[in-house]
Amino acid sequence: MVSLPINFGLTSGIQVGMKYAKQNGYDIAIQFDGDGQHDAKYLKKLVKEIEKNNVDVAIGSRFVEKKKPFTARMLGSRVISFAIKLVTWKKINDPTSGMRAYNKKAIDMFNSNASLTPEPDTIVYMIKKGLNVKEVQVEMREREFGESYLNAFKSIKYMVNMMLSIIFIRTFTRKEK
């Protein structure tokens, strides 16, 4: 366990994990919520996808085979999905999912670009850079303890951030030749 002396937020936590993975030469890094929402048994599925099917980033998605419900909570998810489709022409059904697996290529990307976060705009960045992103059907539970970092005000801020990032910044991300 790597513990940080100062709380610097979720993004910083993911980035230190990525640094750790690179320093120790890991092939795959997994991003996973510790609040009981995610079930570890699906991680094998994600890892298998990377090992067998030449996928660079595997996302644990709730809505590959299932329909997305029409609730207020899923509205934001829909808007982000639509924005991603607009920018990359790729359908990501569950862009806000926090269960993801990254291969070496994606780990390197995290290490070389400090603006990458564990949020949907990073998926857009990676698709734009030519990485193969794939969703895998998983089940998620309601969170068992802890609280979401999104309340009403923050989720509006989050949405504005994401839309700005996806539409105005990531649109101009180009694949390197």
Binding site: V2, S3, L4, P5, S12, V16, Y20
Partner: peptide, 16 residues
């Protein structure tokens, strides 16, 4: 901010 974050990471990885 970026510099403090990197220091934070460095300390954590070093301690680990």
């Amino acid at each position: 901010n970026e510099k403090i974050k990197n220091l934070n990471h460095y300390i954590a990885l070093k301690e680990n």
